[in-house]
C-alpha cells in the first residue's frame, strides 16, 4: 500500500453515476494531445485495483449507487474520492429527482476533492486532479489505513450473483480486509 506516495503520479478509475456525459467528454479531452494528462503523471486505469483515486460524475443515480460503492471498496488504500462536476458535487440541476441520491456525499461520503463546473473545463479538471496528487503526498494519507466507515458500509452490500467481468468487482467488498 502507498506505492504511489513517493511518486508524482495518480492513477484514476472513473465511474459515471448518472451524468449527462458532458463531464465525461471534458475528462476524455484530457487524454488528447492538447492536454496529455499522462505527461503530468495522470492516467485512467481499467481496474479499481490499480487506482489511487476514484473520479465520480453525475448526481449518483439510484441504480449506480451499489456498483459505485463496490468500485470504491475495491480501491486499495490510501485512496482519494473525487467529485467531478456540479452533479457529483451535489449541486446540479438533477438534485432531488426521485432516482438520484445526493451526489457523492449523499450516496457515499464527503469527497476529498471537488471539481465544480457544469462541466468543468479540461484545464480545471487537470488542476483539480493535480490537487488530488498533492494530497496523496501528505502524511495524512496514511491515517485511514484502518478499515474506514465507507468500507464497512460497502461490505453491507452482498456479493452480486453473476460474475461481472473484471470491471465490476461485485464481491470485492468481501475480499478487501
Amino acid at each position: 500500500m502507498g506505492h504511489h506516495s513517493h511518486s508524482r503520479s495518480l492513477q484514476c478509475r472513473h465511474v459515471d453515476a448518472g451524468s449527462c456525459n458532458g463531464c465525461e467528454q471534458e475528462l476524455n479531452a484530457l487524454t488528447g494531445s492538447f492536454y496529455d494528462m499522462q505527461h503530468v503523471g495522470l492516467d485512467i486505469v481499467a481496474s479499481p485495483r490499480h487506482a489511487d483515486a476514484l473520479i465520480v460524475t453525475g448526481p449518483v443515480s439510484d441504480t449506480m449507487m451499489t456498483p459505485l460503492r463496490a468500485v470504491w471498496a475495491a480501491l486499495p488504500r490510501p485512496k482519494r474520492l473525487v467529485a467531478l462536476g456540479d452533479c457529483a458535487a451535489g449541486y446540479g440541476v438533477f438534485q432531488g429527482a426521485y432516482a438520484t441520491r445526493g451526489g457523492v456525499e449523499g450516496s457515499m461520503r464527503p469527497p476529498d476533492v471537488v471539481i465544480r463546473g457544469c462541466p468543468p473545463t479540461p484545464a480545471e479538471i487537470l488542476q483539480g486532479l493535480t490537487a488530488v496528487m498533492d494530497t496523496l503526498l501528505e502524511p495524512s494519507s496514511f491515517i485511514d489505513s484502518q478499515p474506514s466507515a465507507d468500507l464497512v458500509e460497502a461490505r453491507r452490500i452482498p456479493p452480486l450473483e453473476q460474475p461481472r467481468g473484471d470491471q465490476t468487482p461485485g464481491d470485492v467488498g468481501e475480499r478487501e480486509i
Binding site: H14, D16, S19, N21, I44, P67, Q167, T168
Partner: peptide, 8 residues
C-alpha cells in the same frame, strides 16, 4: 461500470 471514460 467500465474500464475507460464511458457512460454506465
Amino acid at each position: 461500470t467500465h474500464a475507460g471514460i464511458i457512460e454506465s
